[in-house]
């Protein structure tokens, strides 16, 4: 399965995603420069975290205009799996591939720490190896991770099973004190209505190896591999 990792000037998790795909998953992977266009040569696209174009404007607001994101929209519309992590999630929102928007964290600070997220939907390309309601230990690192969507949009997300991850306690309990950034309905990750595009604020690539502090992120990457197996 061939992965592509889009590199914007200012991306800083591109190397990390590349590393996990290549050295942990053992899959072929290439960088895609933001100025380039691409087509069907990839089986999965990762939009990595970082500060694309410095994010001096609204996060992800400039990245959406890049040629690579144009190709990404085509790729996603044709059903290819796309995973946007952190700034990648923000870019997917700005590009319209996902619904909603990001506000600043309620404490008005950047937050970097391990949190727990509960898997809300295991019938996706990204979570099919998880158990129902499984809790993952996974780090966040962002300034604008306070997901917002209006009530109508939220209702749609719920009725289509598009909410994939919610912030929770270690035991899977959902409560305000486990919501690190104020996200609406504790949302940490959602898909599009077709289910092939995932955006999430936590960083699975940061917890995919034994030497780090959790390997729960690997479940997400392995699910992608497993999905194509299931599909074919």
């Amino acid at each position: 399965m061939k992965f592509g990792v889009i590199v914007f000037p200012g991306s800083n998790c591109d190397h990390d995603c590349f590393h996990v795909v290549k050295n942990v998953l053992g899959q072929p992977v290439e960088y895609i420069w933001h100025d380039d266009i691409f087509g069907g040569e990839f089986d999965c696209i990762i939009v990595p975290g970082g500060f694309s174009y410095g994010d001096y404007l609204r996060t992800g607001a400039i990245a959406r205009f890049s040629p690579a994101v144009n190709s990404l929209i085509d790729f996603a519309n044709s059903g290819g799996p796309v995973i946007g992590i952190c700034n990648g999630f923000q870019i997917l929102l700005e590009s319209g591939l996902l619904k909603g928007a990001m506000l600043r964290n309620t404490n008005m600070h950047f937050i970097c720490k391990y949190v727990y997220i509960r898997v809300e939907n295991i019938d996706t390309p990204f979570t099919n190896l998880c158990k129902p309601n499984q809790v993952l230990k996974i780090p966040i690192a962002h300034n604008e991770g306070n997901y917002y969507i209006d009530e109508v949009g939220l209702k749609d997300l719920k009725s289509n099973n598009q909410i994939v991850f919610r912030y929770s306690s270690k035991e899977g309990q959902i409560a305000d004190k486990y919501n690190p950034n104020g996200a609406k309905d504790f949302i940490a990750g959602i898909t599009n209505s077709k289910g092939n595009v995932l955006g999430l604020m936590p960083h699975p690539e940061r917890c995919s190896e034994d030497v780090l502090n959790s390997t729960d992120g690997l479940l997400i990457f392995k699910s992608i591999l497993n999905w194509t197996k299931v599909k074919t």
Binding site: D16, C112, A141, V211
Partner: peptide, 18 residues
């Protein structure tokens, strides 16, 4: 932690001891 939670201390996926 009020300080170090504001710093990204995990990017580059090398940080074993936080």
């Amino acid at each position: 932690n009020w300080i170090y939670h504001q710093y990204d201390h995990m990017v580059q996926v090398n940080t074993m001891v936080l």
